[in-house]
């Protein structure tokens, strides 16, 4: 595949993302038109339509795009880091860890400020990533990728059980916490996104800078070391990026599953395994997937909405099963 084709794919991805963001602003329960949306920017008149567009739809579209992008890129980095086709922030319990800390903060200490939610999510994600890292390298050669997936699932189950246990401590917070835990880009606060955005941006930027090193790491530990790569440093840097991207995403939207697992596979089959192309392309595809799922989620049981996490699970589970069945690493 030539560089031109790859650039073309990236371009198409960007265009698709922009179109879907626009569609996400226009379509939904409240009737709005393309013209109405345009007017709300040029001549805001305080009508219901304009208010919905400016305060509900636009934040929602922006959040879906950013979260989808972060989760997908975190998935790529994890899959390379763990050499595991099933690795992703949700399967290995990173999302659940971040969720656990946020709920604990909400329920036990009543913290509600955007900054503290963000930091709690980062701490939780970091703790879970650390557990995964230790389990992956403990023993003589660590766990095999498949067993690692199982261990991650157990960690995720543990965190989510304890999270649900914490919810009984504070009835008043239950609603807020349940809503957050459902994993959704709807009704989220734009300020929260803005306070997380610097970290997400740092994660994306860092991922792009690390892309070359990830290419080397993907060739295997021994080869990478032979080529003069500081594998230890690269792995720790990559883990930190996962924490930034996945933790930040969870802080805004709650745990949304399966974006981080499906997208890297699709992206790899289209654009190849060069991380310098794979990472941005995955980011775009992740944004596209989450935007499309979010738009679809408004129409399935109208006037109610399906949480977007349910939508991604509906698409993601068959895919997960396909990979699990295909896996040459059947052990």
């Amino acid at each position: 595949m030539t560089t031109g084709t790859k650039a073309g794919l990236l371009f198409i991805g960007t265009v698709m993302t922009i179109i879907l963001m626009a569609a996400s602003v226009v379509y939904g329960y409240t009737d709005t038109t393309w013209k109405g949306v345009y007017d709300s920017f040029t001549s805001f008149n305080g009508s219901n339509e304009h208010i919905v567009v400016q305060t509900v739809r636009i934040p929602r579209a922006l959040i879906a795009a950013c979260i989808g992008m972060s989760l997908a890129m975190a998935g790529v980095i994890m899959q390379t880091l763990m050499k595991n086709p099933l690795a992703s922030p949700d399967i290995l319990g990173i999302n659940a860890g971040a969720g656990f800390f946020v709920v604990m903060g909400l329920v036990m200490f009543g913290v509600g400020s955007n900054q503290s939610i963000t930091w709690l999510a980062f701490i939780g994600a970091a703790l879970a990533q650390f557990l995964v890292f230790v389990l992956g390298s403990a023993g003589r050669e660590g766990l095999t990728p498949m067993k690692m997936t199982l261990a991650g699932a157990a960690i995720a189950a543990m965190f989510s059980s304890i999270t649900q246990g914490f919810l009984v401590f504070n009835e008043a917070m239950l609603d807020q916490a349940l809503f957050w835990l459902a994993g959704s880009v709807q009704g989220r606060n734009l300020d929260l996104l803005l306070s997380v955005l610097p970290y997400l941006a740092a994660g994306v930027l860092g991922a792009m800078l690390l892309a070359g090193k990830l290419n080397v790491l993907a060739m295997g530990e021994d080869v990478a070391r032979g080529l003069g790569l500081h594998t230890g440093f690269t792995k720790i840097a990559a883990s930190l990026l996962v924490v930034l991207l996945a933790g930040g995403a969870v802080a805004v939207a709650g745990p949304i599953g399966f974006v981080g697992i499906i997208i890297p596979h699709i992206a790899r089959s289209w654009i190849g395994i060069d991380h310098r192309w794979l990472l941005p392309f995955s980011g775009l595809l992740g944004a596209i997937l989450l935007l499309a799922s979010d738009i679809a989620s408004r129409y399935i049981i109208m006037p109610q909405e399906v949480p977007v996490g349910v939508m991604t699970a509906a698409i993601g589970v068959p895919f997960f099963i396909h990979i699990a069945r295909k896996g040459g690493m059947s052990r």
Binding site: M146, T149, L150, G257, F320, A324, R325
Partner: peptide, 18 residues
């Protein structure tokens, strides 16, 4: 394969939670 059985189980657990 035992491990595959449980992997598929993890996938279906996610589906059932949805």
């Amino acid at each position: 394969s035992p491990i595959r059985l449980i992997l598929i189980g993890i996938g279906l657990t996610a589906a059932m939670k949805a």
